[in-house]
Amino acid sequence: MINKAYKFRIYPNQAQQVIIAKTIGCSRFVFNHFLDKWNCAYKETGKGLAYGTCSAGHPLLKKELSWLKEVDSIALQSSVRNLADSFDRFFKKQNNAPRFKSKRNPVQSYTTKHTNGNIAVIGNAIKLPKLGLVKLAKSREITGRILNATVRRNPSGKYFVSILVETEVCELPKTHTSIGIDVGLKNFAILSDKTVYENPKFFRTLEKKLAKAQRILSRRQEQAIRQQKPLHEAKNYQKQRKIVACIHEEIANKRNDYLHKTSTEIIKNHDVIGIEDLQVSNLLKNHNLAKAISEVSWSQFRTMLEYKAKWYGKTVIAVAKNFPSSQLCSSCGYRHKDVKDFALREWVCPECNSSHDRDRNASINLENEAIRLLTAGTAGLA
């Protein structure tokens, strides 16, 4: 049994959009209110507030502020739970301390839990608390027990719902094959079986269009400032802001679609997958390559491979970052230190005279090292 999310676009009517906006605002207010209480308590006593304390204070807050009763109460309670979870992760050193939420964040959302059938998919509509039936673009059937639903409003003005369900996933048939993957910038991924996935460079293809749209947005912002208009009242600015947001959304959607299709194809065709444990945050410090590295999304690709392998009974092994996959000859094991130069794309082994393509040789070495780690029982400790 796993937790799996289904994301669909929804089309709320005008009245439903108002309720969604109110729920997002109230959820943000509750989160910020108890975060402020937590910070004050920590300054005074040296200790924060437990989830039970915040949860008990929630009904009292609703009595003081009657407008909190207009929205879904479960969504407000979820904000309190999210704050407690944020602090739990902070004390475990998994993330930074929680910060106050802003209405200027690009994506606004709230989460409501499934209770007594308050969330259900009925035909081409979804039933949500306080909203009733909302038109749904259902692209696939939902299987499993619904746990919660998250309603999001994107900067482009589009609305989406993510439905988290508990479901059972069957393992894929075994192929009894292994593969090594070397990721790059010229090509997105090079596999040890000579399969090459090209780098589509979705951002570069739309970069000029995005730059032009952003210049127009900047001019309209200056025009609104000269006219002493607030930006949320400047209609031309808001129209152009949505155009810019749509271009960003198009880039993100194309990239996610490509990563999902590529990772699923690799998981289906191979049982053991060896990848390099890259420290992408360190690589981004190279300002000559930072844009290209960010565009190619190696971390997201690895995340997809790992959770899909867990779902479908496959194995992903991360080889240590200090493993010299590019320098080793995949035929004889000789280490050629001149290959440290990234400009050297093809080389001949001085020991056995084997000719190597840099990327494919690295993928073969990653496959061999992954099999060695798996055989030795040290997978995951590399």
Rank of each mutant, 00 (worst) to 15 (best):
R99A: 09
R99K: 10
K101T: 02
S102D: 02
K103A: 12
N105Q: 07
N105E: 07
N105Y: 07
S109G: 04
S109H: 05
S109Q: 06
S109C: 07
Y110H: 02
Y110C: 03
T111Y: 02
K113E: 09
K113N: 10
H114I: 00
T115H: 11
G117R: 08
G117F: 04
I119P: 00
I119S: 03
A120L: 15
G123P: 02
N124V: 05
A125H: 12
A125I: 00
A125S: 12
I126N: 01
I126L: 10
I126S: 05
I126G: 04
I126C: 07
K127E: 04
K127A: 13
K127I: 05
K127V: 04
L128R: 02
P129N: 12
P129S: 11
P129W: 10
L131I: 08
G132Y: 09
G132L: 11
G132V: 08
L133E: 07
V134F: 10
K135R: 11
K135L: 11
K135W: 09
K135M: 10
L136I: 10
A137W: 06
A137I: 06
A137G: 05
K138L: 12
K138Y: 07
S139D: 02
E141C: 10
E141D: 09
I142Q: 05
I142S: 06
T143P: 00
G144D: 01
G144L: 04
R145P: 00
R145V: 13
L147I: 15
L147P: 00
L147E: 05
L147F: 07
A149K: 00
A149N: 01
T150Q: 06
T150M: 06
V151E: 00
R153K: 12
R153L: 15
N154L: 15
S156N: 13
S156D: 13
K158N: 13
K158E: 15
Y159H: 13
Y159I: 03
F160M: 07
S162D: 04
I163F: 14
L164A: 11
L164D: 00
L164F: 10
V165T: 14
E166Q: 14
T167D: 13
E168D: 13
E168Y: 13
E171W: 13
L172F: 15
P173Y: 14
P173K: 13
P173H: 12
P173S: 14
K174C: 13
T175A: 15
T175N: 05
H176Q: 12
S178I: 03
I179W: 03
I179A: 10
I179K: 03
I181S: 08
I181C: 14
D182S: 15
D182Y: 14
V183C: 13
V183W: 09
G184V: 08
L185C: 14
K186A: 15
